[in-house]
Design a protein around this nucleic acid. Structure first.
Lengths: 250, 250
DNA sequence: CAGTGGTCTAGACCACACT
DNA sequence: GTGTGGTCTAGACCACTGC
């Protein structure tokens, strides 16, 4: 296997399994194996990279820990998807006060807006774009049991999402991240959220059917694809009268 | 090593490393090695349990992933603490809008109340106690740069925290969880948080120096020690005008 | 049955920290 | 140098899945 550590890396020593991980990551990014598909077996990869099975195993272990792949004993290792039931709400931490995540079935979606516009300085910065770059702006309301729960403003860089329409967003069966994966080959791997409490504006209160100035959870999310490239900015306003944001600390 | 799987476990097969993990966990809980101390080397543990070093390694790997221990190459494996700078704010996700977690130095603490009382049905349920059981109730305000940021109500089961005083809480240099560890031998390992947006009550607004009805982040935390035993209920009211709750999704 | 991931071992060697 | 955790290998066997 390659012995030389990746150039420009701070540590003077890069473990072999880490190099293998990078290679697998590159194949994933290149689309050699698509979301939902099985990747080659550990033995195959070991042969391909000329290392032992244990080394490949450790590389895949890390990818699995990061939720980039799923291991299934007896079946193989699969490229992770936003489609799977278990992770239907992988990035949605709002859960009903009684019951479990997803117990209310899929959210009812209403697309209010889907237009092409130009990135403000603020939006551009968060998406690592330049001010004025083309972006898609989407506004939608998610409801559970016919009660609106989430108002979301979404910004996407226009280039990778060329052709995205409100109809697609409204009709696709599954989370929007699954749509992005399937139709635009954009995989969201990780996201950061900044959370605040804010009073509902006049407009927000109407859309969420609450009184003006009702405190809302304001969730600003930046979602990243490979190489920590930001690919989505989402500003969500959550009603928390019947739901709450759930988080586990370790 | 023990070959029989743990009784009452659903899976008919329990891996050896998992059994070893349980044994190490028991030693940790029994206080055989205290927070901050080093545990025996992998070779020593392997000899003790009559398994290979690799098996012990995998057990410790999982404990390290759960933040119960820290591995330090060349030095040893240490029982995790709430004292360490890196994890000074292990359970505090409120960070300043500009700057990094902890960049403002330690929070200024003001203990408003520390009294012994009886658990209401609601509190008892969350702490797995019985209604009317003795609990300690603490109220405090945390400030950064002399600006109050967090109002917290804390409930602790009275028995394990017998002797806890407001003075201790006010004067202990470090997070309260470090105090609990050092003085009461109670280690908080994990916590669940439910987050909502609520309007500041009259009382809360005065203590946090904001206008009444200002939206606050309401964070209800249940912290757990070994065996998922709840040992603390904390209801925090966070100002989010200069800080935000930060979370990473994977 | 064959093929996959999962466990376990034994041994060699490397990187790091302390003395 | 000695002892620690970290890496890597080769091989054996186990558990699960699907043909």
């Amino acid at each position: 296997m390659a012995i030389s550590p990746d150039a420009l890396d701070a540590p003077s020593f890069t473990p072999l399994y880490s190099q293998i991980k990078t290679l697998i990551l590159q194949s994933l990014q290149a689309g050699e194996w698509k979301p939902g598909e099985v990747i080659p077996s550990e033995m195959d990869l070991a042969a391909r990279y000329r290392v032992s099975q244990g080394t490949v195993r450790k590389a895949i272990d890390e990818l699995a820990a990061e939720n980039l792949v799923n291991r299934r004993q007896g079946k193989g290792t699969f490229v992770a998807t936003h489609e799977e039931k278990q992770v239907q709400f992988r990035f949605l931490k709002l859960v009903p006060d009684d019951g479990k995540p997803g117990s209310e079935g899929p959210a009812e979606r209403q697309i209010l807006e889907c237009k092409k516009t130009r990135a403000s300085a603020e939006i551009a910065k968060l998406l690592s774009l330049r001010t004025g770059d083309a972006v898609l702006q989407i506004r939608r309301v998610l409801a559970f049991k016919h009660i609106p729960a989430i108002l979301e403003d979404i910004w996407l860089p226009a280039a990778p999402f060329k052709g995205l329409t409100a109809e697609q967003l409204a009709n696709y069966p599954g989370p929007s991240y699954a749509l992005f994966e399937t139709e635009f080959n954009v995989r969201m791997l990780r996201a950061d959220e900044k959370i605040r409490a804010l009073p509902a504006s006049n407009e927000q209160s109407k859309l969420l059917k609450v009184e003006q100035s009702t405190p809302l959870l304001f969730v600003e999310r930046v979602a990243y694809t490979y190489r920590d490239t930001p690919m989505e900015l989402r500003r969500g306003y959550y009603r928390t009268d019947t739901h709450h944001y759930f988080n586990t600390l370790n």
